[in-house]
Simulated scan of single mutants.
Amino acid sequence: MTKANCQEATITANYSATPSVPAGTEVIFRADNVRIGTAVVDGEDTATLRHSFDRAGEKNLTALVQERVVDGRTYPTAEASATLTVNDPAGQDTTTDLTYTRPDVEVEAEVLTGDLIRFIATVDAGDKAIEDGATVSFFDGDTFLGTAPVDPETGQAVFDHRFAERGEHQVRAVFNGQEQKNEDGVTTDVLEPSESDPVVLDVQAHEVVIEEPEPQDPEDPQDPQDPEDPTVPSPTPGTGSGSWDGSGSSGSSSSPNLLASIFGSLAALGLIPQSLLNLLGWNLS
C-alpha cells in the first residue's frame, strides 16, 4: 500500500496471484477498522481508491481480498496494512490590491463629501482558483464600511461608497480567505486572508455659495398730491358756488318760501318746536 499526506488521499493496493489474478477481483479498504470503499484490481494487479478524510491525524489502513473460488481454483484471503498521515491542507498565500474609480467625474477631480467612490479589490490566489462565496471587507481606518463578493472569473470585489465626513480617509480591503471543499464536504484547499495597502483620500466639504443681490439706489417716493409731478392730475376748480342764510337769501335755485312753508307745517303739527323756527328767523305765527 502507498501513503499520502493530505486530506484527500489516493490509496493503492497491489495484489498478485498464481497463475494470474482472476478478473473482477475486489479489494476492500478500511481506515481505523471502518470500511471506506472498494476497488477492482486492474490489469496491472493494482487496486486504487481515492478517499477524503474529514479529520487530520494518523490513519491505520488495511486492504483486504477475501477468499474466493474461480474456475475450481481457490484464491486465499490476502491482507495488507499501512499508516497514512493526514494533515490539514497547506494554506495558499494570497495578495490583495485596492484601487478606486470615480464613475461620475474624472478621477483627478477633488473628492467632495457625498461623491460616489467605487473601490475595486483584486485578489490573487496564485495557481489556486477562487470559488463562489469568497468575500472582501472594506474599512476606513478601523471603521467597517461593508463587504462585497469576489467574482471568481476576475478575482475582483467591487464596493461603492459615499463619504459623509470631510477629512483624510485611509481605506483598505481585506480578503477574508476561503476554505474549499469537495463534494463530500471535506476541505481540500485553504486560501489565506490578505490585506491591501491603504488608499488615502482627502475628502473636502461641498461649498454652499449664496449670491448676495446687488444693492440698488432707493427711489424717492412721490407724493401723489405733489403738483410738480406731471403724472398726477391736478383738480379742476369749480365755476360756481352758493350759500344761503337763515334770512332766506341764497345763491341756489331753492326757494326759501317753500322751506318756510314746510317747517311751518311741521311746527303746526308739533313735530318741531317753535323755538327752532325763531332761531332760523322764521316767525310763521
Score class of each variant (00 low, 15 high):
residue 153 E to S: 05
residue 213 P to R: 05
residue 203 V to Y: 14
residue 189 D to W: 05
residue 164 A to F: 15
residue 212 E to R: 11
residue 191 L to S: 01
residue 142 D to L: 10
residue 180 Q to P: 01
residue 190 V to C: 00
residue 160 D to F: 01
residue 180 Q to A: 01
residue 174 V to F: 14
residue 197 D to A: 13
residue 185 G to Y: 08
residue 189 D to E: 12
residue 163 F to T: 00
residue 145 L to I: 03
residue 172 R to P: 02
residue 183 E to M: 06
residue 170 Q to P: 00
residue 190 V to W: 00
residue 156 Q to C: 03
residue 146 G to V: 13
residue 171 V to R: 15
residue 165 E to D: 08
residue 199 V to R: 04
residue 204 Q to H: 14
residue 158 V to N: 02
residue 186 V to S: 04
residue 152 P to L: 10
residue 146 G to D: 10
residue 186 V to W: 09
residue 175 F to V: 03
residue 175 F to R: 11
residue 153 E to T: 04
residue 188 T to M: 09
residue 187 T to P: 00
residue 152 P to Q: 02
residue 150 V to T: 02
residue 202 D to G: 08
residue 160 D to Q: 11
residue 208 V to W: 13
residue 192 E to W: 01
residue 207 E to T: 14
residue 182 N to D: 08
residue 152 P to V: 03
residue 163 F to S: 00
residue 154 T to E: 10
residue 157 A to G: 02
residue 168 E to Q: 12
residue 142 D to F: 08
residue 209 V to T: 11
residue 199 V to M: 04
residue 202 D to E: 10
residue 201 L to G: 07
residue 216 Q to K: 14
residue 161 H to T: 10
residue 207 E to Q: 10
residue 187 T to K: 02
residue 197 D to Y: 13
residue 179 E to M: 03
residue 168 E to H: 12
residue 144 F to R: 13
